[in-house]
């Protein structure tokens, strides 16, 4: 059918669901890398040292800020869903989802402030 048949997706809450999904996938992809780095400590600290020095590069730090954003977003999005599904209904979910995104952005911002 036409490209315009998916108009129901032009909605902040649909976007919230999409971001929740994508942030979850990104975090799941990151987790093995995270464990791999932790594993470096086991075989003597040398390689870990090298890695930690690399992680002080500005670009890598910026990416860490992104990670904080994704993590907070996924956490708050998950809490919102648990709330919807387990407690009496509360309206204004668009505003709540927006607030979750703002808080996540603020968390990432403060994280970067501390790092730089």
């Amino acid at each position: 059918m036409s490209a315009r048949t998916l108009g129901h997706r032009r909605d902040p809450l649909w976007l919230a669901a999409l971001l929740h999904r994508l942030s979850g996938v990104a975090l799941a992809a990151f987790l093995p890398v995270h464990f791999l780095v932790l594993g470096l400590a086991i075989g003597g600290g040398g390689r870990l040292e090298g890695f930690l020095r690399w992680s002080e590069e500005p670009l890598v730090r910026l990416a860490e800020g992104g990670l904080v954003f994704l993590f907070t977003l996924h956490l708050l999005g998950g809490l919102r869903l648990l709330w919807i599904e387990n407690f009496p209904w509360r309206g204004g979910q668009t505003g709540i989802a927006l607030l979750a995104a703002l808080v996540s952005a603020a968390a990432a911002f403060f994280f970067l402030l501390i790092l730089f």
């Binding site: 129901h8 909605d11 869903l81 599904e85």
Partner: peptide, 10 residues
């Protein structure tokens, strides 16, 4: 159901 709320919206 993923609680997208598209049903409620429309």
């Amino acid at each position: 159901c993923h609680s997208h709320q598209s049903c409620e919206r429309h």
